[in-house]
């Protein structure tokens, strides 16, 4: 049985924790709204660009000399997993669910005898994957100190990907992030980045009419493909930012509730043992008086 003083201390410390979680929840809620708006607003652009590429790619199917960013380099041996996670923890299962998806994907590829390389964007993903797949992590890009994700950050990641691709470091790149569905639901997602994912191409009513290009097709693709990489990374980072705040908000909400429950329980125990002690003291006094 803990002493009254111990109980008092426990209650005080749980209360302090509750204040912190409550504050974190409120901060996350405020940040969430901004992040959510940004993520939702960025969706149309990324989707349209994907659709445009899909249309282009379907017209170029089987054509020799298609750019490798679009059609791949014909090999499927070295895979690069780009794992986007948060810089900070205390956001429920957000980081671990992305890491888990990436790890499963990596293990499946390894079982097939492929080479797997990992590029982590965000420190937490690197931490989570270090134990199992440590030697396969070729680079970690930290986003610490970045308050609002801008296109510049995504472009920086995109450029590094293009560099690695140009150096022949990988054949296929897959992007991992959490798609923001709602405050309580974030879906870990894997998206193929290189070669471009052209599934779900919209049906062209023109029925295979020949596209005209201005300027030349190669010039457009040379501009469009690298840009698409950055745009898709940008979208992933924004989705991630919103998901992270959503996950943190609900995690902190339940932490605050748990702390409340714990304070209630501790207070009852505290009051009971105080009452028991008073009763005990009274009995001692009374029986002392009776003995006289």
């Amino acid at each position: 049985m803990p002493s009254l003083k111990d109980l008092r201390n426990r209650i005080a410390s749980v209360k302090a924790t509750q204040k912190i979680t409550k504050a974190m929840q409120m901060v996350a809620a405020a940040k969430l709204r901004r992040a959510q708006e940004a993520a939702l607003a960025a969706r149309p652009y990324a989707e349209r660009m994907q659709a445009m590429l899909a249309g282009l790619a379907s017209g170029m199917e089987g054509a020799a000399g298609a750019p490798t960013l679009l059609a791949g380099n014909g090999r499927d041996d070295t895979h690069l997993l780009v794992v986007c996670t948060a810089e900070r923890g205390l956001c429920g299962s957000f980081n671990s669910s992305i890491a888990r998806l990436a790890r499963e994907h990596a293990n499946r590829l390894i079982a097939q005898g492929k080479t797997v390389k990992i590029l982590c964007v965000g420190r937490k993903g690197a931490d989570a994957l270090k134990r199992d797949l440590g030697p396969r992590i070729i680079r970690t890009i930290e986003m610490r100190g970045v308050r609002n994700i801008g296109f510049a950050q995504a472009d920086m990641v995109g450029k590094q990907l293009l560099e690695l691709h140009a150096a022949g470091e990988f054949d296929v790149a897959t992007l991992f992030y959490a798609q923001f569905k709602s405050v309580i639901q974030q879906i870990p997602t894997a998206q193929r980045l290189i070669p471009a994912d052209v599934s779900g191409a919209p049906e062209r009513t023109s029925g295979g009419a020949i596209y005209e290009y201005e300027p030349e097709e190669e010039d457009i693709l040379a501009e469009l493909l690298p840009r698409n990489i950055s745009v898709q990374v940008f979208r992933a980072l924004l989705e991630n930012a919103a998901s992270e705040q959503g996950a943190r908000m609900s995690a902190m909400d339940s932490a605050t509730r748990n702390a409340g429950e714990m304070i209630g329980k501790l207070t009852i125990t505290y009051n009971r043992s105080r009452q028991a002690q008073i009763t005990k003291e009274l009995i001692e006094i009374i029986s002392g008086a009776e003995a006289l």
């Binding site: 009419a209 005209e212 201005e214």
Partner: peptide
Amino acid sequence: VSGEARSVVVPGSEGEFEVLKDHAPFLAM
């Protein structure tokens, strides 16, 4: 913008062009 339009004049890299209904498939910078 997302909606119906009668005509759109686009500043293309090689010159302005106007898009009307049933324009041929075209991709421009």
